[in-house]
Each structure stands twice: as structure tokens, then as C-alpha cells.
């Protein structure tokens, strides 16, 4: 396999006396859509943020394209990895096309001053997220599903080889969840490497090429979703008693309740 685009190596993150990440290692290769799973507070967001240099590591390393993230300038980092954070506040009622154009920030592009290359990247992102009809809308008036698509488009417009998306489908209805995951899967199929934090296990099985399950800052399992996400592992990771139901079209997870103690 080629070199990983993003890599966490034995990452340790401490907050006060608590270890949030306990030597977590994680590699992301081109063409992968990796789902980062785990219960609330397991360190998923911290792992994602440490890869971007937003959380300092106590030990271990965070590498982007082989270089330590701290050694890269903000622009150089942004050109290698785009980021869609979990909380997506919008301070001012800007137009949708302005928000997407901000995706070209690392290349000097902005509304009114987009180069041909910038414009092509923006148009491609608009197309991928099906936003043509919304370009002149005020972003603060969009529905949750529409806004989520705009934020994904903004991240895609950077045309970085890697993307870290923290819960891009949170608070969306099933159709919009599906749409967003479909967009990410298509990007990965075209060669991008995407790390996405997901809570919906069924969605992860449907779209991700690989899943990494973490708990208490440690990796529980990593591999193809159908192999990794067994009822045993789900009991261990989430403390749930869950079973897969399968038919010809795919499988869905049914949660029966909390797992029996001592699992």
C-alpha cells in the first residue's frame, strides 16, 4: 500500500489528569472512507482534532502526508486536509455561494476574486452537493439538511486530498444522512481519503470502506465494517445488546437494550 495521507502514531492527549487518547494509532490511505466509531466521550473528536493540530499531543505524533502537523503552515495544512467540524456556527447571514467560496481560502480565493481554478473547484463542489438552486440564499435561512450540504460543499471546494468530517450527518433526517454519506463515498471512490466520525452504525456499514472503533481513547478494532462490527464488539464498545438483521438489500442494526453486565 502507498504511504498514509493522515496518520496518528501512538497519540497521547491529556486534559488535566485524564488521558483522552491513550496511545491511539490510526492511518488513512487514499481512496478510503473511514468511519470513526465509538461511544460518546471515547475520544473520536479529539483524535480528529489532533490530526489537524487543534489539540496538542502529550506524546506520539500526528502526520499529514508524512510531515508533523505542527511543522506545516496553516495554509500548507489546509491544502492537504480539509476539515468539517462538529459544530458549524455561522456568524453572519452570508450567501451560500460566499460560504462555499471560503473553501478556497488556502488558495487566496474569495467571492469576487476567484481564479479559474478556484471557480472550477467551487462549481464541482456545488454540483457534487446539488446546491445549484440555493447559491444566492442566505445561509442562515437554510434548513438543517440544506445547511449540512453547504458545509460539505465548502469542505470539498478546498480540493484537498484528505477530508476530516466530524459527524457530518448529525441531526439530519434519513434522506439527508444518506445524501451526505453518498457524497463522501463518491469522493473517496475518486481517490480522496476521508475520515468521518459517525454514530449511525448501519450507515457506517453501508458506506464506509473501513471502520475504526475506539473506546476510552484506545482502538478496539479496525477493518471492513461487516467483519468488525459484530454483536460482541458492539456490546464491548457501546454496551448494547444488538443484532444485525439482513436481507438481500443490506443489513440494519437492531438494538434490543443494554448489554448484559460483565460483557
Amino acid at each position: 500500500m502507498t504511504a498514509p495521507l493522515l496518520s496518528l502514531q501512538k497519540a497521547v492527549v491529556r486534559r488535566g489528569h485524564k488521558q483522552i487518547l491513550k496511545g491511539l494509532s490510526l492511518d488513512l490511505y487514499p481512496g478510503e472512507l473511514v468511519g470513526l466509531l465509538g461511544p460518546n466521550g471515547s475520544g473520536k473528536t479529539t483524535a480528529a482534532r489532533s490530526l489537524l493540530g487543534l489539540v496538542p499531543l502529550s506524546s506520539g505524533s500526528a502526520l499529514i502526508g508524512g510531515d508533523p502537523v505542527a511543522s506545516l503552515s496553516a495554509t500548507a495544512r489546509a491544502r492537504r486536509v480539509a476539515y468539517l467540524p462538529q459544530s458549524r456556527p455561522v456568524a453572519w447571514p452570508i450567501a451560500v455561494h460566499e460560504a462555499i467560496a471560503l473553501g478556497r481560502f488556502a488558495y487566496g480565493g474569495q467571492t469576487g476574486r476567484l481564479s479559474v481554478l478556484d471557480q472550477a473547484a467551487v462549481d464541482e463542489a456545488v454540483e457534487a452537493c446539488d446546491l445549484k438552486g440555493l447559491l444566492n440564499r442566505d445561509i442562515t435561512t437554510l434548513s438543517g439538511g440544506e445547511a449540512a450540504r453547504v458545509h460539505v460543499a465548502r469542505a470539498l471546494a478546498a480540493k484537498a486530498p484528505a477530508l476530516i468530517a466530524d459527524e457530518p450527518t448529525a441531526a439530519l433526517d434519513p434522506l439527508h444522512q444518506w445524501t451526505i454519506m453518498q457524497v463522501l463515498a463518491r469522493q473517496a471512490a475518486q481517490g480522496s481519503s476521508i475520515l468521518t466520525v459517525v454514530h449511525d452504525v448501519t450507515l457506517a456499514v453501508q458506506f464506509c470502506t473501513r471502520v475504526v472503533v475506539i473506546k476510552d481513547g484506545e482502538c478496539l478494532a479496525s477493518g471492513p465494517p461487516a467483519e468488525v462490527l459484530t454483536p460482541d464488539l458492539l456490546a464491548k464498545a457501546y454496551g448494547i445488546d444488538a443484532r444485525w438483521t439482513c436481507d438481500a438489500d443490506g443489513s440494519a442494526l437492531v438494538v434490543h437494550g443494554p448489554a448484559a453486565r460483565g460483557v
Partner: peptide
Amino acid sequence: TLGEEAAHGLGL
């Protein structure tokens, strides 16, 4: 405009 986290991601 998109928040500090997103602005960091944009390369600011």
C-alpha cells in the same frame, strides 16, 4: 464567519 474551528480548517 464559519467559526474558529472551521476557519482553522480553511487554513487561517
